[in-house]
Design a protein around this nucleic acid. Structure first.
Lengths: 183, 183
DNA sequence: ATTTGACATGTAAAAAAAGACATGTCAAGG
DNA sequence: CCTTGACATGTCTTTTTTTACATGTCAAAT
């Protein structure tokens, strides 16, 4: 259950509302740990009951601002230093899973799928570049440095996905796996 | 629910048992899509009920060999060509999530966590090299080429994780985010 | 005035995944 | 002969995630 730790992590940066947290997941964090808004509101309540966060303020339109508590800080630090076992280290990434099975397709579909994948990940890599460019360059802020590091890993991954799709395009046999490209 | 497609994909390569499938997940596929043995047995039954796979043979110790059907092949081809939306493209990767929050730690923990992460991912990258070396070099087999492509992506990711951890080690402020390393 | 659309928070039910438990087979070594 | 350990398949319960439903606020444009 990393959801609670992701929430604690964001709240460690600054107090914010469920809505703010939802937005953060929607446009960046969700690529690494997808979460829906209802899950967030449910978990915020649980976190509050356990005393890891507290309701620190109200805003317009029923807005509720939560802040992390000392106990919450302790808990996220515990999680950050906890050794991860093989299960926790595993990633869940459908596009890569799919790439491992593309050889099942016959020529036409294979080429169009791989072309689409390459294209998609080149765009994603470019998008990450833009997004990194918008990050302020304060090295006094650890959270920015960490975000940058995560973005760089993402860029490496997207780049590798694009490269892999491109490479498979001319490596894979043309008939669904029963013969080589040519002599 | 990519589980069923992962199973269909493996069975597209060759008929095998739930146990065989479990082993495949344990030592490679599980890094991209983690699955437990009970989930596999449950899904095999469902897949059989839907006519996507069939019981093709029995083996020693109650072993049951499943083979993919034409309907199953159709279904996995459909899945492989289906456009993926943003949700399906998202990855779930706790170690990277964690990396994004390490700045919360104070100096000592920070350094030891980052050192451990770098070390871990250097080892993982090395392990992938070994594993790629054991893959036969038949380019007549599309499934091998696809596996190789997936492994290359994995290597890029592991390498990037190690680099990111290393870079953060000397980028991150030494006091939990309230000052730069020095002038 | 009213409609549109972003803001904002929730509940309930269904599906998927994780964790714990349970059972039996067969080969090799002591 | 008996024990150990890999082989092999399952069920049951709980937790987590997804999907669908539900309600209300406030600002800006028509």
């Amino acid at each position: 259950m990393s959801l609670r730790h992701a929430l604690l992590g964001l709240l460690a940066e600054a107090p914010m509302s469920g809505y703010d947290l939802t937005k953060r997941f929607e446009h960046s964090l969700g690529r690494v740990w997808p979460v829906r808004h209802n899950q967030i509101y449910t978990e915020l309540k649980a976190l509050q009951d356990e005393g890891l966060i507290e309701l620190s303020d109200y805003g317009p339109r029923g807005r509720k601002i939560y802040a992390i508590t000392q106990a919450g800080l302790g808990e996220i630090r515990r999680w950050l230093t906890e050794p991860l076992d093989a299960a926790a280290r595993s990633m869940r990434f459908e596009p890569l899973l799919r790439l491992g099975f593309v050889w099942i397709l016959e020529e036409n579909d294979l080429q169009s799928v791989l072309a689409a994948e390459e294209d998609h990940y080149r765009q994603q890599a470019a998008w990450l570049d833009e997004m990194m460019a918008t990050l302020p360059d304060l090295d006094s802020d650890g959270s920015i440095a960490s975000r940058r590091a995560v973005a760089r890993v993402g860029k490496a991954l997207y780049g590798a996905m694009a490269e892999a799709a491109a490479a498979l395009r001319d490596t894979l046999p043309s008939d669904g796996g029963r013969a080589g490209p040519e002599a």
